[in-house]
Design a binder for these strands. Structure first.
Lengths: 121, 121
DNA sequence: CTGATCTACAACCATTTGGTTGTACAATAC
DNA sequence: GTATTGTACAACCAAATGGTTGTAGATCAG
């Protein structure tokens, strides 16, 4: 039975830091949702928000560095697409926390079960 | 059939920003994992990391503001526990992105299906 | 009571972040 | 050809972040 396995890799995990950091902004989450649903050029995205083109460009760069998005040059435009793998990685991370939670719950259940045994002859 | 429903609530969602921001740090994720698995006092947590007590205290505060953790005073100690609801909220958010992805996939499937219909008499 | 422990909070500092404007260049349109 | 569009990138700025030290208040142990 595995008892303790909280941080298999101790040390800064910059990739995951970047992943959640990228998700920690409303504009970036909105961009991610849009490019996940369909294709957008950077300027097409920029037209949607009340901020400069450069600002949107930076947001896309943050998403790209976090592997949540990919860019591909098409003519003079840069097409942005959602990257499913990046998303799944984030989801997987949160699922691990859910697992830890359930492990704790079952450990508590085990303790209760041991109490029951003690009551038996 | 729902076609477009990317941002039902336009505007800064500071709660979700805080949620992912809180998750975007290795130390905080480690703290979260530990207090999700069991109980820790703030000083008990502080003993685990190569940084000052005040720094850990701040990390716990960030997790608390993000509703990922709760604190409860017990004697002179402050007990930190994982908050399952906060975690589920984050997971739910990523599940929504997964949904958007699948909607896009099925929309593409629909287009292909329409092509098939055109081929039929 | 005295001393040790646990916590809270302020002040400070370096770095990062989220935004701006401006410049430069490649690809398209006319 | 020239003009326009889409992008990249630098320089700058205010605010937030992640860390420090120091001070002060509660609570517990002897």
């Amino acid at each position: 039975m595995v008892v303790d396995q909280l941080s298999p890799t101790p040390g800064k995990d910059v990739d995951i830091d970047r992943l959640f950091q990228a998700l920690a902004d409303t504009t970036r989450r909105d961009i991610l949702a849009r490019v996940t649903a369909g294709e957008y050029s950077v300027s097409g995205l920029a037209a949607l928000y009340a901020m400069s083109f450069a600002a949107v460009q930076k947001h896309v760069a943050v998403l790209e560095r976090a592997s949540l998005v990919t860019k591909e040059k098409r003519g003079r435009e840069q097409i942005v697409r959602g990257n499913h793998d990046g998303l799944q990685k984030a989801r997987h991370l949160l699922d691990q926390f859910e697992m830890i939670w359930r492990q704790r719950a079952s450990r508590i259940a085990d303790i209760l079960a041991e109490d029951d045994e003690r009551d038996l002859p």
